[in-house]
Simulated scan of single mutants.
Amino acid sequence: MTRYALLLRGINVGGRTKVPMAELRQLLSGLGYAGVATLLQSGNAVVECDHGPGELVAEVERAIGDRFGMAVPCLVRTEEQLRGVIEGNPLATVHDDGAKLLALFLSEAPDPELLRHNDPTRLDANHIRVGERVIYQWCPDGARNAPDVRRFVEQNLKVSVTARNWNTVCRLREMLAG
């Protein structure tokens, strides 16, 4: 079985997509996943299953839609993938506050041609770096005062994005290694 971090986009943010974590854990356990745990109230979960990533995403998105009546995009990462995000952080020497460093996870690698014409680093060349299926963004004045990389990427690169602060990324990796 493989352990995955589930990154559910927009859960419990802004009041429109309320999903109690106890109900999410119950839903995921009911799908037959083992080792179900959640982190914070914002759509982070860890599960173990025999599914591949695509099958897992489809099943979780369908189950959330059926149970809660909402479309919630789900991205998944393994412990190895999260370790790669952490070890590959090109802003590691720049940031000093994990709450102000974001990892914007992409549903898939963007088309290289689209990326060439729509490079998100142009939004803030000093604070944004593109990695493998992740964009790193340092927000020294807080995320609310930083360029909206998520919206830019979704509109221009045509991939789904969900962001987590660095503290959450590191904690999810610890849970997966656990």
Rank of each mutant, 00 (worst) to 15 (best):
residue 3 R to A: 12
residue 4 Y to P: 00
residue 7 L to A: 04
residue 9 R to A: 08
residue 13 V to Y: 08
residue 16 R to P: 03
residue 17 T to D: 06
residue 19 V to S: 02
residue 25 R to F: 06
residue 28 L to H: 04
residue 31 L to F: 11
residue 31 L to I: 09
residue 36 V to C: 05
residue 41 Q to I: 01
residue 42 S to P: 01
residue 43 G to W: 00
residue 44 N to S: 04
residue 47 V to C: 08
residue 49 C to Y: 07
residue 50 D to H: 09
residue 50 D to K: 08
residue 51 H to N: 11
residue 53 P to K: 09
residue 57 V to M: 07
residue 58 A to V: 09
residue 59 E to Y: 02
residue 59 E to N: 06
residue 61 E to G: 02
residue 63 A to T: 11
residue 64 I to C: 03
residue 67 R to L: 08
residue 70 M to E: 09
residue 73 P to F: 08
residue 75 L to G: 06
residue 77 R to G: 04
residue 82 L to Q: 05
residue 82 L to E: 02
residue 83 R to P: 04
residue 89 N to A: 07
residue 91 L to P: 01
residue 93 T to G: 14
residue 97 D to Y: 08
residue 98 G to K: 03
residue 103 A to W: 01
residue 104 L to T: 03
residue 108 E to I: 04
residue 108 E to D: 14
residue 109 A to F: 06
residue 112 P to K: 12
residue 114 L to A: 15
residue 117 H to Y: 14
residue 121 T to I: 10
residue 121 T to W: 06
residue 125 A to R: 15
residue 127 H to L: 12
residue 128 I to Q: 06
residue 130 V to A: 10
residue 131 G to Q: 05
residue 134 V to S: 11
residue 135 I to R: 03
residue 150 R to H: 07
residue 151 R to I: 12
residue 155 Q to Y: 11
residue 157 L to M: 15
residue 157 L to E: 10
residue 159 V to Y: 07
residue 160 S to D: 11
residue 166 W to K: 03
residue 166 W to A: 02
residue 166 W to E: 00
residue 167 N to S: 07
residue 171 R to D: 06
residue 173 R to W: 13
